[in-house]
Amino acid sequence: MAKPNKKLPERSVDIICTKCKAMLFKYKKGGKGSLVKCFKERIVIDYTETPCECPSCGNVFARETLVRGTPAYKIIGGKVAMK
Score class of each variant (00 low, 15 high):
Lys3Leu: 14
Lys3Ser: 10
Lys3Arg: 12
Pro4His: 03
Pro4Tyr: 03
Asn5Val: 09
Asn5Ile: 11
Lys7Ser: 07
Lys7Met: 08
Leu8Ala: 01
Pro9Ser: 00
Pro9Thr: 02
Arg11Leu: 07
Arg11Ser: 12
Ser12Cys: 06
Asp14Ser: 13
Ile15Phe: 04
Ile16Ser: 09
Ile16Ala: 06
Cys17Met: 09
Cys17Asn: 06
Thr18Glu: 02
Lys19Trp: 00
Lys19His: 12
Cys20Trp: 01
Cys20Arg: 06
Cys20Lys: 04
Lys21His: 07
Ala22Val: 11
Met23Val: 03
Leu24His: 00
Phe25Cys: 10
Phe25Gly: 01
Tyr27Gly: 04
Tyr27Cys: 00
Tyr27Pro: 03
Lys28Cys: 02
Lys28Tyr: 10
Lys28Met: 06
Lys29Ser: 06
Lys29Asp: 07
Lys29Ala: 00
Gly30Asn: 08
Gly31Val: 05
Lys32Gln: 14
Lys32Leu: 10
Gly33Cys: 07
Gly33Trp: 03
Leu35Asp: 13
Val36Lys: 08
Val36Arg: 06
Val36Thr: 09
Val36Cys: 09
Lys37Glu: 10
Lys37Pro: 00
Phe39Lys: 00
Lys40Gly: 01
Arg42Pro: 07
Ile43Arg: 00
Ile43Leu: 05
Val44Arg: 12
Ile45Tyr: 08
Ile45Cys: 13
Ile45Met: 13
Asp46Met: 01
Asp46Asn: 15
Tyr47Asp: 04
Thr48Asn: 12
Thr48Val: 08
Glu49His: 05
Glu49Asp: 09
Thr50Ile: 12
Thr50Asp: 12
Thr50Gly: 04
Thr50Cys: 06
Pro51Ala: 07
Cys52Gln: 08
Glu53Cys: 06
Glu53Pro: 09
Glu53Val: 15
Cys54Lys: 12
Cys54Thr: 08
Cys54Asn: 10
Cys54Gly: 13
Cys54Ser: 09
Ser56Arg: 09
Cys57Met: 02
Gly58Asp: 04
Gly58Asn: 08
Asn59His: 12
Asn59Pro: 03
Val60Arg: 14
Val60Met: 02
Phe61Val: 09
Arg63Trp: 10
Arg63Lys: 14
Arg63Gln: 09
Glu64Arg: 08
Thr65Phe: 08
Leu66Ile: 14
Leu66Val: 08
Arg68Gly: 03
Arg68Phe: 01
Arg68Tyr: 06
Gly69Asn: 12
Gly69Arg: 04
Pro71Trp: 01
Ala72Glu: 02
Tyr73Cys: 01
Tyr73Trp: 15
Tyr73His: 12
Lys74Arg: 13
Lys74Leu: 11
Ile76Pro: 11
Gly77Arg: 06
Gly77Ile: 04
Gly77Leu: 09
Gly77Thr: 10
Gly78Tyr: 05
Gly78Glu: 04
Gly78Ile: 02
Lys79Arg: 15
Lys79Phe: 05
Val80Gln: 02
Ala81Val: 08
Lys83Pro: 03
Lys83Gln: 08
